[in-house]
C-alpha cells in the first residue's frame, strides 16, 4: 500500500543573533544552518493498518507524514502510494489520500459546513449517491448531519475537527493521514475521534497514519508504532513487541512487616524505603511467582504487586535515547 524508500529531508535554517546588534548584523550577513530533519527512512505499510508515528517535538515525524502526503518534496528518496510515486504523480495519487492536519482546517470559515463539503464534492467529482452514502456512514459515527447547516466560524473545536474528518473522508480515500488530531480536544471529542478512526478502519478498510503525543491514542488505536527521534527510526513494531524489546523487564513491589528487605540473586533491588522494596527482573530470566516464592522463604510478606513497563515508560526511554 505505502512504501517509503530512503526518505530524507534537509532544511536550511536561518540563524538569528539576539538583540539590536544581532538584528543589524542579520541585515548585512545571514548565517544558515543545515538541518537534517529526516534521515534515510524506509518502511512499508500494508492496507488496513493503523500506524502511529511518535517521537518528541522536532523529531521529524510531521516532516515524514507531510512528505508521505505529498505536501513536502523530499530532498532524496521516494514515497509510493499504491505503487505510484507521489512527487511525480501528485494529482492522481492524492485522490487516494485524505488529510487532517491538527489545528489547520480546510473548511471555509465564513460559510456553513455543507458548503465546504459541496466544494469537495466538485473537486473530487463525487457522485451524489456516493456522497449521500458516505454522509450516512459519517452521520452514524459522528452525527455529522446536524452540523451541516452550521457556519464553521460558530463551531466548537471539537465540531470543527469532526467537520474536517468528514471532509477528508468524503472521497473515500484508501489512506487517511492525521497530524496530531486530538490536540486540544476535550474527552468526549477525543472519544468520538478515536471511535471514528476505528470504525472507518473496520468498515472501509482505510489505512490510517497518525502522529500523536497522546498516550490514549496510541493505546487505543495503534496496532503498529513507528518511533522517530532526530529524524531516524528508533523502533518499528506493535506495542508489546516494542515493550519487550526496549523494556524487557517488570518491577515487583513487595511490602514486608518490617524495614528489613532481603536481596534476591536473579533480580535487582532498585528501591528500598521503609517496609517496601522494589525488585526489577528480566522477563525471560525469571517470573514474579518464582521470586515471591523465594522471598517468602526468607521473610513474611504482607503484600505484593507487579508494575509493567507501560507506554509512557517506552516513550521516556525512546525519547531519552
Amino acid at each position: 500500500m505505502i512504501s517509503v524508500e530512503n526518505l530524507s529531508k534537509d532544511y536550511l535554517l536561518k540563524k538569528k543573533a539576539p538583540g539590536l546588534s544581532g538584528a543589524l548584523k542579520g541585515l548585512v550577513k545571514r548565517k544558515y544552518e543545515e538541518i537534517h530533519a529526516v534521515k534515510d527512512l524506509s518502511f512499508h505499510i500494508d492496507e488496513g493498518e493503523i500506524v502511529g508515528f511518535i517521537g518528541p517535538n522536532g523529531a521529524g515525524k510531521s516532516t515524514t507524514i507531510k512528505m508521505m502526503a505529498g505536501i513536502l518534496t523530499p530532498t532524496s528518496g521516494n514515497v509510493f502510494i499504491n505503487g505510484e510515486d507521489i512527487t511525480k504523480h501528485r494529482k492522481e495519487v492524492v485522490r487516494n489520500i485524505g488529510v487532517v492536519f491538527g489545528q489547520r482546517s480546510q473548511l471555509n470559515w465564513d460559510l456553513r459546513l455543507g458548503e465546504s463539503f459541496e466544494l469537495l464534492k466538485h473537486i473530487y467529482q463525487i457522485k451524489q449517491k456516493d456522497y449521500e452514502a458516505t454522509l450516512d456512514v459519517m452521520d452514524e459515527i459522528l452525527g455529522i448531519r446536524e452540523l451541516l447547516d452550521k457556519p464553521v466560524r460558530q463551531m466548537s473545536l471539537g465540531q470543527r475537527v469532526k467537520g474536517d474528518l468528514v471532509a477528508a473522508m468524503l472521497h473515500s480515500p484508501k489512506v487517511l493521514f492525521l497530524d496530531e488530531p486530538t490536540i486540544g480536544l476535550d474527552v468526549s471529542s477525543k472519544f468520538a475521534l478515536r471511535t471514528f478512526i476505528k470504525e472507518i478502519n473496520k468498515i472501509k478498510k482505510t489505512t490510517v497514519i497518525l502522529t500523536t503525543h497522546d498516550l490514549g491514542d496510541i493505546e487505543e488505536l495503534c496496532e503498529r508504532l513507528i518511533i522517530i527521534n532526530h529524524g531516524v527510526m528508533m523502533e518499528d513494531g506493535n506495542l508489546s513487541q516494542i515493550v519487550d524489546r526496549i523494556a524487557p523487564y517488570k518491577t515487583l513491589v513487595v511490602e514486608y512487616y518490617d524495614d528489613i528487605a532481603p536481596e534476591h540473586v536473579r533480580c535487582e533491588m532498585i528501591e528500598h524505603e521503609g517496609n517496601i522494596a522494589k525488585y526489577k527482573f528480566m522477563k525471560q530470566e525469571t517470573t514474579a511467582a518464582e521470586i515471591i516464592a523465594d522471598l517468602s522463604k526468607e521473610k513474611n510478606i504482607k503484600d505484593v504487586s507487579i508494575e509493567e513497563a507501560g507506554i509512557d515508560d517506552i516513550i521516556k526511554i525512546a525519547y531519552g535515547a
Binding site: K91, E92, V94, I97, V99, R104, I123
Partner: peptide, 10 residues
Amino acid sequence: DFDKYLTRPL
C-alpha cells in the same frame, strides 16, 4: 496554507 491545495487532485 498551501498544505490543503497540495493534497487535492487539482
